[in-house]
Deep mutational scan, measured.
Amino acid sequence: GAPPLPPYSAGGREVTMKKGDILTLLNSTNKDWWKVEVNDRQGFVPAAYVKKLDSGTGKELVLALYDYQEK
């Protein structure tokens, strides 16, 4: 199953993602919540729920390892 959710501390809205989604990583300075862009929406997802990909394009991409439903 998915890892436990860290307390929400990102101070911005969250976004929903599905397992297998490829998201653009915008900011990973917060260790628990990373800012991503998905379907032209920006928001935060739990860092433990995604994995960085080596895209080779200069853009940082992450793979959704679990479904996440915004609150």
Score class of each variant (00 low, 15 high):
R13P: 15
T29M: 11
Y8E: 08
L5M: 10
L25A: 02
G43L: 05
Q42C: 08
K51H: 09
Q69P: 15
V36M: 01
K52W: 07
G58P: 09
K51M: 14
T24N: 08
F44K: 02
K59H: 09
L53H: 05
R41V: 15
P4G: 07
L63F: 08
V36Y: 01
V15T: 06
V62Y: 07
E60R: 13
P7M: 08
P4Q: 09
P6S: 02
S9D: 10
K52V: 12
G12S: 07
G56T: 14
P4C: 07
K59M: 11
G11M: 07
G12P: 06
E14F: 10
L53I: 14
L23N: 01
K18V: 07
V50H: 00
Q42V: 14
L63I: 15
R41D: 11
K51Y: 06
A10E: 06
L63R: 08
G43Y: 07
L61C: 06
D40S: 14
L63N: 02
E70L: 10
G43E: 03
Y8M: 12
V38G: 09
T16P: 12
R41A: 12
A47D: 01
A48S: 13
L53R: 02
K35R: 11
A2I: 12
E37C: 09
K31A: 13
R41Y: 09
V36R: 00
T29W: 08
L65P: 00
T16R: 08
G11T: 12
K51V: 13
N39K: 12
W33E: 00
D40I: 04
G20R: 02
Q42K: 10
V36Q: 00
E60G: 08
I22F: 05
L61N: 05
K51D: 05
G58M: 09
T16E: 07
K19N: 03
A48Q: 09
I22M: 06
S9A: 14
V36F: 01
Y49T: 03
L25R: 01
D21A: 05
G43R: 03
N30Q: 10
V50E: 00
S28C: 09
S9H: 14
Y66V: 05
G11H: 14
E60D: 13
L26G: 01
G12K: 06
Q69E: 11
K31T: 08
A48M: 10
P7W: 05
P46R: 02
V45H: 00
L26M: 06
P3S: 05
L53P: 00
F44A: 02
E14L: 11
G56V: 13
P4E: 09
A48Y: 05
G43F: 07
N39D: 15
L26Y: 03
L26H: 04
T16S: 15
D54R: 09
T57M: 13
W34R: 01
D54Q: 12
Y66R: 05
Q69Y: 15
D32M: 11
N30G: 10
P7V: 06
L5K: 08
A64K: 00
G20A: 02
F44S: 03
V62E: 00
V36H: 00
